[in-house]
Simulated assay, not measured.
Amino acid sequence: MGTEAISSREIVLLSNASSNEKPSLVIEPTKGLFHVDLLEIWKHRELLYFLIWRDIKVKYKQTVIGASWAIIQPVMTMIIFTVIFGNFANIPSDGIPYPIFAYTALLPWTYFSQAVTRTSLGVLGNSVLITKVYFPRLIIPIASAVAPLIEFCLSFLVLTGLMAWFNVVPTWGIVLLPLFLLLALFTALGVGLFLSALHVRYRDVGHSIGFLIQFWMYASPVIYPLSLVPEGWRFLYSLNPMVGVIEGFRWAILGKVNPDLVAMGLSGGMVVTLLALGILYFNRMERYFADVI
């Protein structure tokens, strides 16, 4: 076994036998597959901050317009969706102007897709750290999932402009927006934990992420409303955790359509399930990371 046979719990043993004997540092394996040592992660918070800052800095290094790409990507996607699906295909938007209807869904979706992609590739991309230095391995996927939140905040500025342009006034539901964003983060983290651990052993995962994200987008109410899904398929469709996130965003920001509470409840349950399974599989595989990488 490599260095991953050790885990995140440190115990300092002070010997009373001799005053000249130095303290020993013993790192023991985690107990339980669902073990998450939050205290240990907090102790390494400076590393977490460094990894988040590094991901942002490296992504926009040697670019002409820098972080403006975080705004350009969802805006251009919104324009394309408006022309093709809003004008040509005449997809309904529940009485909401299609540009803001699409952009409100693109905000959480863009964050989710970036977070899943970065988290899935994060462990393998930090192989040098994993094989050389001890730290809680969960810090890597957490940092990868948190970093895109900075770009989300920049993209949100465009939404405020769209709301002013279309005279959309937010309702009290907007105070619940952080809750739906947290659900998006947990979904991305749960999926990313599973894929990142799987990617260490099977490099095919890196080639399939783009296809997975593209397929998942069309299986989510990004370009069409949930009301367009037939009633007979609504239950199965709502097992997609991003359904609740996107519907929650539209309700919290636009407040035009009452959310489907059953669909949002099913999606919320799937978020918890995905996160639990992601932690379970990651904890099971992390002890072999150093050997396989």
Results as ranks from 00 to 15, higher is better:
residue 12 V to I: 15
residue 66 G to N: 06
residue 244 G to P: 00
residue 93 S to R: 05
residue 174 I to S: 02
residue 191 V to K: 04
residue 103 Y to W: 11
residue 42 W to I: 11
residue 12 V to A: 05
residue 42 W to M: 08
residue 184 A to M: 07
residue 265 G to R: 06
residue 5 A to I: 03
residue 132 K to L: 07
residue 225 P to A: 14
residue 6 I to A: 14
residue 170 P to W: 10
residue 290 A to W: 11
residue 192 G to W: 09
residue 252 A to I: 00
residue 98 Y to I: 02
residue 163 M to T: 04
residue 31 K to S: 09
residue 13 L to S: 09
residue 113 S to G: 04
residue 185 L to N: 00
residue 215 F to T: 15
residue 154 L to Q: 09
residue 209 I to Q: 12
residue 268 G to F: 12
residue 46 E to H: 13
residue 120 S to D: 02
residue 233 W to N: 05
residue 246 I to Y: 02
residue 20 N to V: 08
residue 110 T to P: 00
residue 286 E to C: 02
residue 90 N to S: 11
residue 28 E to Q: 13
residue 240 N to H: 06
residue 103 Y to Q: 07
residue 153 C to T: 13
residue 56 I to V: 14
residue 278 G to L: 08
residue 170 P to N: 06
residue 112 F to K: 03
residue 235 F to P: 00
residue 15 S to T: 10
residue 112 F to M: 04
residue 235 F to C: 01
residue 44 H to E: 12
residue 281 Y to R: 11
residue 201 R to T: 14
residue 75 V to F: 12
residue 40 E to L: 01
residue 34 F to T: 07
residue 79 I to F: 14
residue 78 M to I: 09
residue 287 R to T: 11
residue 98 Y to M: 04
residue 124 L to Y: 10
residue 49 Y to Q: 11
residue 98 Y to F: 15
residue 68 S to E: 00
residue 186 F to Q: 12
residue 216 W to L: 13
residue 37 D to E: 13
residue 46 E to K: 10
residue 89 A to Q: 05
residue 52 I to A: 03
residue 107 L to C: 08
residue 185 L to V: 11
residue 289 F to N: 07
residue 158 V to C: 12
residue 41 I to K: 02
residue 33 L to R: 10
residue 65 I to S: 02
residue 175 V to C: 01
residue 15 S to M: 01
residue 134 Y to M: 09
residue 67 A to F: 15
residue 96 I to T: 15
residue 143 A to H: 07
residue 175 V to M: 09
residue 50 F to H: 12
residue 248 G to R: 02
residue 256 K to V: 07
residue 91 I to N: 04
residue 47 L to G: 05
residue 190 G to A: 07
residue 257 V to S: 08
residue 179 L to R: 10
residue 185 L to E: 00
residue 225 P to M: 14
residue 204 D to P: 11
residue 234 R to Y: 01
residue 142 I to C: 03
residue 106 L to Q: 14
residue 189 L to V: 10
residue 282 F to Q: 06
residue 142 I to S: 04
residue 104 T to L: 03
residue 128 V to Q: 15
residue 93 S to Y: 09
residue 117 T to F: 09
residue 41 I to L: 13
residue 12 V to N: 08
residue 199 H to G: 01
residue 165 W to C: 00
residue 256 K to L: 01
residue 141 P to T: 01
residue 90 N to L: 08
residue 95 G to C: 05
residue 3 T to V: 13
residue 141 P to S: 01
residue 183 L to E: 06
residue 31 K to V: 11
residue 285 M to S: 13
residue 205 V to E: 07
residue 102 A to S: 15
residue 226 L to M: 14
residue 244 G to D: 01
residue 231 E to T: 12
residue 70 A to L: 01
residue 12 V to M: 10
residue 112 F to H: 09
residue 134 Y to F: 13
residue 47 L to N: 03
residue 269 G to K: 10
residue 221 P to L: 14
residue 109 W to M: 05
residue 52 I to N: 04
residue 243 V to K: 05
residue 153 C to S: 13
residue 43 K to C: 02
residue 262 V to T: 09
residue 124 L to D: 02
residue 154 L to G: 04
residue 224 Y to P: 01
residue 291 D to G: 02
residue 269 G to Q: 06
residue 32 G to I: 03
residue 292 V to S: 02
residue 125 G to V: 06
residue 16 N to W: 06
residue 39 L to Y: 15
residue 193 L to Q: 06
residue 14 L to R: 10
residue 156 F to K: 03
residue 62 Q to G: 01
